[in-house]
Amino acid sequence: MIEARNITKFFSVVNDDRTADGLTAVLSVSLQIPEGRFISLVGPTGCGKSTFLEILAGLQAPSEGEVWIDGRRVLEPLPSSRKEMEAYRRRYRFLSPIANSLLRDRPKHDIAMIFQDYAVFPWMTAIQNVRFTLKLRGTPRARRDELAKKYLAQVGLAGSETKYPAQLSGGMRQRLAIARALSVEPRIILMDEPFAAVDAQTRERLQEDLQELCTSTRQTVVLVTHDIDEAVYLSDEIIVFSPLPGTIRNLIPVNVPRPRRRGDPELTGIRERVLAIYRHDAEHLCDWSI
């Protein structure tokens, strides 16, 4: 169970004329994602959905609000007084509040994340990349090789184990990132536009693979995308974000049994609903900025 309570994220920005300004990326988002659900966050680009996902992963601290996963808080609260600030500084002098450990690899939560631009390590071969994450999760050395091979084969990278990411195509690199995330068998997978940079055919194949995986292993998945078809095809529930500041505009359940077929009239109907929301917002443009 992922629980986001009143998440707000401000950024301070400097304008071109050197005046300071505030930007609200995410405004007061509350969300409960039960175990085993596939949730998609859709919305136009720059509406704070990626920021929200990073807050869920604990990679950014929210300005206000808190995220809880299975009854444990993801990041400790930011200091609100001078005294707290001093304690916080002392505590994290040599640490990043995100990593939160100096010597021992120890994930705080059972999360895996797939990034938009892959973020697989270019200095490691495909199999070393997967082995590295397995090592971080404390898999015994003897099992790492076998597991890494298994998951690379699962995403169709058998035979490319010893290639460096630079030698792989964009789609293969993305599949490597997926293999890396799946190999640790996480209970929660966060995906930040995972298929944005691959060609249409590869994208469809990866989506089908993903659907298959999610039906077989009931993991909680949060997918950020601006591809409505992808969201409709894959998810149990679509959350439409409105841009600047990012807030939840609509919750649209997709109650279509799996396995789904592309071009199912029910799916097309839901797609039309999401598009109608987009159109409505574009016509009745309202200025939310503070």
Binding site: E54, A57, G58, L59, S96, I98, A99, S101, L102, L103, R104, D105, R106, P107, K108, I111, A112, M113, F115, A119, V120, F121, F132, T133, L136, R137, V184
Partner: peptide
């Protein structure tokens, strides 16, 4: 970030 998500010290 991608290493930290997986729990790297």
């Amino acid at each position: 970030a991608s290493a930290r998500v997986f729990g790297a010290s």
